[in-house]
Design a protein around this nucleic acid. Structure first.
Lengths: 325, 325
DNA sequence: GCCATTGCGGACAACTTCGGTCCTCAATCA
DNA sequence: TGATTGAGGACCGAAGTTGTCCGCAATGGC
């Protein structure tokens, strides 16, 4: 039933536009009887979307926050805003989500209607990059490379190596890696027949998209570590923290370039971490969301205290979670 | 058919994760025969999603950019990145999309699973606001107010007026308006029984959400103009530009606070615009996407030339639009 | 030019679902 | 208590779904 599918999508979209809906209103909007509406609501529920309802006068339906992310239905303006926000985040303005931003960006740019793409480009042209992006990376370049990685397309670009010498490269891109300060592309160099790591800010991609290639086995399991070794990146601030949970419980909960988790026993482990500032180190610690013991260094202790306060303030002003007043 | 709807969504999500898919792969993923896959593809097509396909060896399917925005299917990481990027954009970092950002933000925060909401809050606590946000507005406050407007909920907050005197307000929020420099809330003050305009950066919202209220007629049709009058906001840079299209053709194509469109005749009109810098004025001009005549002021002319160049550069490095290499 | 590969889509049949109608029940609030 | 609103069972005709089988068309390597 094509019409049913479309209607479910419309129903979701209505719920994203407004929180509360009376059953009669929804039924009228969708041009169905209220019985069918109830059935549709049931369908959404059985698809995993938590729709609360209340009886009586002033009753109605409301979509709550579930355990999984429902599809986001954006109008044109909103899509442009999201694309711009992601470009910002991907450029390094928001530490900790760079890789996810690029992934989301390549998703949205792939399906963004051309007329909206033009608006994004126009707005982007005037927007300044975040001040602390060390070597500003073109969001479009990032997104293009990310797409090539995802779609397994060969890529040709001009590259300026650390000595300043320019060369033309032809590669099979494998993955983008962000060290938190810079972007790197791990790719198989077709000419040199070996894996290479490229700094993205030194890449000038060609317009032409290459043919599809079969994916190769990556040069290392932990690409973040592979890149880190290759570029001898030495974070200024380091610390060893004892976490009061099992190693498995935190594995994969934080970007891998942040630090190493090593088990001590069944309910504690060591977190060896490095970052460019104690502030960001403290943040990642808080992000882990587990109990830990921390005595030194003093700077980190202080930062964690500061963060705890900020975090409290930030959450104190939050949205209420009530179902109904 | 519930399963069919869910499968269509999964199919869309697969397409957003990778561009090219062989029919057999898709069918295997969805555990259906290739015939059913073709039927599903047809369904998506008839729902308006442009899915291209190619025959022959190495053939396959690919989702292109259509004329409408398909639902965005994000994983957890990506959702967090989007929420953070939007908070950034809403805070004024990206001129021109503030209102859309807030709308998208309140959409996504409403359905964001709580565990992701915590991550957003944690990351947000460490992220600095954009440097040029004149009076920094808490993204959470903005999002809370936007939700209240959308859901027609009464709102109580503490307000510090321009003299610095604090008061407690109880309002029926109507709409958020961004002048490009600051956020304002247009609301019906329940105590004073009149419309009021509040500067959002002076609002300290209460946690408790109020009861739902029936929407009132707004105090003016053009709320942006209403707010602008109320705050006597005088942009430093002004210009009158002759646009070579009918007034109707551009109406509603740009944020209303930017300027006024007045018809001259059937194929031209006057654009009276103001902005804080000639640069942003030039941007909005380019954004209109129509032919125009511009001779003065000289600063604006220069900015438009600069912008045209930048715009060209920005689009020159773009993603290719090919269907297949 | 041949041939393998891959997508296209019609036809069919067994089966499932859909959606309107009609009904009773339960919760909520004035 | 009564009005309002959601919940959901029963029924039934109409409509959609899916796998199977088929021949056709486009593409690219040999």
């Amino acid at each position: 039933m094509l019409e049913t599918s479309a209607r479910l999508l419309r129903l979701l979209s209505l719920f994203q536009g407004r929180r509360y809906w009376a059953g009669a209103d929804l039924a009228a909007r969708l041009e169905i009887t209220s019985r069918t509406l109830r059935r549709d609501v049931d369908k959404l529920r059985s698809l995993g979307y938590p729709i609360h309802s209340t009886s009586g006068a002033e009753g109605g339906y409301q979509l709550g926050a579930g355990s999984a992310m429902p599809p986001l239905l954006l109008d044109d303006e909103e899509a442009v805003a999201v694309a711009l926000g992601l470009r910002y985040a991907a450029a390094g303005a928001i530490e900790g989500v760079e890789e996810a931003s690029v992934r989301a960006l390549s998703k949205i740019e792939q399906i963004l209607p051309p007329r909206l793409g033009r608006r994004v480009a126009a707005l982007q042209a005037v927007v300044m990059m975040p001040p602390h992006a060390e070597s500003s990376v073109n969001a479009r370049t990032l997104s293009a490379i990310a797409s090539a990685c995802r779609d397994q397309e060969a890529l040709r670009f001009r590259y300026r190596d650390h000595a300043g010498a320019a060369s033309s490269r032809s590669v099979e891109p494998h993955r983008l890696v962000s060290t938190g300060r810079r972007w790197y592309l791990v790719a198989w160099d077709s000419d040199r027949k070996d894996w290479r790591t490229f700094r993205v800010d030194r890449i000038q991609p060609r317009l032409t998209a290459g043919p599809r290639v079969v994916p190769r086995d990556p040069p290392a399991q932990d690409l973040a570590a592979y890149v880190a070794r290759g570029i001898s990146y030495a974070p200024r601030c380091r610390a060893r923290i004892k976490l009061l949970v099992a190693a498995e419980a935190v594995a994969g909960r934080l970007p891998p370039h942040i630090g190493l988790i090593e088990p001590i026993d069944a309910h504690s482990c060591t977190f060896e971490a490095g970052a460019s500032t104690f502030e960001s180190l403290a943040m990642h610690l808080v992000l882990l969301g587990v109990d830990f013991e921390l005595t030194e260094p003093a700077e980190l202790v202080e930062q964690v205290r500061l963060l705890a306060k900020r975090y409290a303030r930030a959450t104190a002003g939050g949205l209420s979670q009530r179902v109904r007043s």
